[in-house]
């Protein structure tokens, strides 16, 4: 085996520093979660996870995250489309503000959304006469998760849309396709992988989200408690094992779902070839 001679120095130093720092800050502490869970028997683990209150929080966290990601996929695609293809007043500003959920601290987003959707808030007071309650219900959780997930979809779809060749659309049109048919059969399949990625990123972020949700959720047991809040609740009762079991379950479920989405995407690509 011939060794490539490297002119550049610093490989040992930079890689060594990277590995040590990564291990100290991320890997060692993270391994604590799994080592802690390993001290539980499977029965104990199951008892924590299958408690009705914990199960309800899982259903809410994963259900609301899926729904929010789906809503963001639809409206995020629309917004990206408008930014790329149309001209309108304030477009540059809107394009910049799409990233607001990345930059705005989650606690600030949380109290702002609560103020808007509370029964006496700007939006809440409009909905109250129709008997629609958003703040302090599962609907509030959904609103917060839509807020934090939107940029993931827009920012993954937007560059693909910008780089897309218009020739395909022109070919479709010249062959007699209606605009909707072109969108459905030419544009959407091209965007599908990016859209799915954006959906997956928005979903993954929403499942673990805490700050923007706890203010608007109302945190009623069995109704509007999210899974991360259950971890906090267990910690406040000094039930470290319980907290860890929930954390591991959350990590495993999100990992499995993301893996499934990745496989689906790979399979989708293969089918095209």
């Amino acid at each position: 085996m011939s060794r490539r001679i490297h002119v550049l120095p610093g490989f040992g130093l930079s890689l060594g520093y990277t590995l040590v720092y990564l291990s100290l800050i991320v890997l060692l502490p993270l391994s604590a979660v799994f080592l802690k869970t390993a001290t539980l028997t499977l029965q104990q683990f199951w008892d924590v996870i299958s408690a009705p209150r914990v199960l309800a929080s899982f259903k809410l966290s994963f259900g609301a995250a899926l729904l929010a990601a789906a809503i963001n996929a639809v409206f995020g695609l629309m917004l990206a489309w408008c930014i790329v293809r149309y001209e309108f007043f304030g477009k540059k500003l809107i394009d910049a503000l799409v990233d607001l959920p990345f930059a705005l601290p989650t606690a600030v987003a949380g109290i702002a959304l609560t103020a808007l959707y509370a029964p006496n808030g700007w939006i809440g007071s409009l909905l109250a006469p129709h008997d629609i309650k958003v703040a302090f219900t599962p609907l509030g959780v959904l609103v917060a998760l839509i807020f934090i997930g939107l940029p993931f979809v827009v920012r993954t779809v937007q560059p693909i849309l910008e780089d897309m060749e218009t020739e395909l659309e022109e070919a479709a049109a010249s062959l007699g396709a209606q605009r909707w048919q072109t969108f459905r059969h030419v544009i959407l399949p091209t965007l599908a992988p990016a859209l799915l990625t954006g959906f997956a990123l928005a979903f993954a972020r929403a499942v673990g989200e805490y700050g923007s949700v706890i203010f608007i959720a109302g945190n009623m047991p069995m109704v509007s408690e999210i899974a991360p809040l259950m971890i906090i609740t267990k910690l406040e009762q000094y039930d470290y094992t319980g907290a860890t079991a929930i954390a591991v379950a959350m990590l495993l479920i999100s990992f499995a779902l993301l893996l499934a989405i990745n496989l689906l995407q790979g399979w989708n690509k293969k089918g095209k070839r």
């Binding site: 502490p29 604590a32 805490y210 971890i231 954390a247």
Partner: peptide
Amino acid sequence: SPVIAGLI
């Protein structure tokens, strides 16, 4: 999740 980051 940030909460899990604190937990570790």
